[in-house]
């Protein structure tokens, strides 16, 4: 249970087409992440699947069944919202019970499921509080609890972690990943954060302006991005893209090299790119060096070891790993 198919789906708001005809299959049990810059249509796509937006054309199939005209609650999906969307006038217990109450489930069954969900989400002590008395992370857990108890055929997450602070975000990320491993239910997760996408996904769907740029596992996207957009979007810090003479040498319009695939040296190296250190960001484990003056790419970012000793104004020599150079043609597509 839980295969979702989008068939020639089109979405227009008035005359603006936000999603041109789009086809996508999400397999049962898969953790799929929709990622892209804000306004790329990823949330719209999720809401189309949920039924919160109408499709202008095309079909949404869930487990082979056409659900395009079916109301959100009848699609067997559960959704976790960015704002958590808890009912502020109900206690945690009532929040979690709400979908079951609407489905007309017996009180006993409701209680069994609430207890189980609360236990797995560490919410047992908070069941009688109102959402307003909980921390952000706890609210997020309640929202997840409300989704779990329905035993949906798929979970939809709409940027669920973006309202949490950085430390909590890492923890919740792990919890959601573990939940997926445990439940083995299909999950679709929308985020603009490529780190979340890389760490959580079985498969990533990269979107730009409503168009799917590439679908693949995190490592596929990392190693062989289909075009310049995906290359720049996946990976942190961003891939350096060079144009001009340097690219010509590789018979490409643009070449890309990730910061971690460049060796940096303060001593002259034959054939290396030359530049001047602008800022060196020391993270402890790594150092991100932003270098000015490299022809075709300014600034160029290099990821070096944590203890590399460079400072503002140093002349440095950069050697890219030949095997890790990505080549793109004039249209930005991978060669």
């Amino acid at each position: 249970m839980g295969q979702i198919v989008l068939k020639d789906v089109v979405k227009k708001f008035g005359d603006t087409e936000v999603i041109p005809p789009l086809n996508l299959t999400i397999e049962e049990g898969e953790f799929a992440v929709f990622v892209g810059p804000s306004g790329c249509g990823k949330s719209t796509l999720l809401r189309l699947i949920a039924g919160l937006e109408d499709t202008t054309e095309g079909q949404v199939l869930i487990d082979g069944e056409d659900m395009t005209e079916v109301s959100p609650s009848k699609r067997g999906l559960a959704m976790v919202f960015q704002s958590y969307a808890l009912y502020p006038h109900m206690t945690v217990r009532k929040n979690i019970a709400f979908p079951m109450r609407m489905a007309g489930m017996s009180e006993d069954e409701q209680n069994i499921r609430i207890e189980a969900a609360a236990k797995s989400l560490n919410l047992t002590d908070y069941l009688d509080r109102k959402p307003g008395q909980l921390s952000g992370g706890q609210r997020q857990r309640v929202a997840i609890g409300r989704a779990i108890v329905r035993e949906p055929s798929a979970f939809l997450f709409d940027e669920p972690l973006s309202n949490l602070d950085a430390a909590l975000r890492v923890g919740m990320r792990l919890e959601i990943s573990e939940m997926h491993k445990r439940l083995k239910t299909t999950m679709i997760y929308v985020t603009h954060d490529q780190v979340e996408a890389m760490t959580m996904a079985d498969r990533i769907v990269v979107l730009q302006a409503g168009v799917i740029e590439q679908v693949g596992t995190p490592l596929e996207l990392y190693h062989s991005p289909r075009n310049k957009f995906v290359a720049g979007f996946i990976g942190s810090p961003k891939m350096n893209l060079l144009e001009g003479a340097e690219a010509q040498k590789h018979k490409a319009h643009t070449i890309g090299i990730r910061p971690e695939h460049i060796k940096v040296s303060t001593k002259a190296v034959k054939g290396a790119w030359k530049g001047t250190v602008g800022v060196a960001e020391h993270l402890g484990s790594d150092t991100f060096i932003h270098i000015h003056g490299v022809e075709g790419c300014d600034p160029m970012t290099v990821r070096a070891a944590g203890d590399v000793a460079v400072k503002h104004g140093d002349k440095v020599y950069l050697t890219p790993e030949k095997s890790q150079i990505h080549k793109f043609d004039e249209a930005g597509l991978r060669i």
């Binding site: 009848k74 559960a78 919202f81 709400f98 329905r150």
Partner: peptide, 12 residues
Amino acid sequence: PKDIIEAGQMDG
């Protein structure tokens, strides 16, 4: 928040 109404729709 519109989300709360939509959560209600998802919840049936």
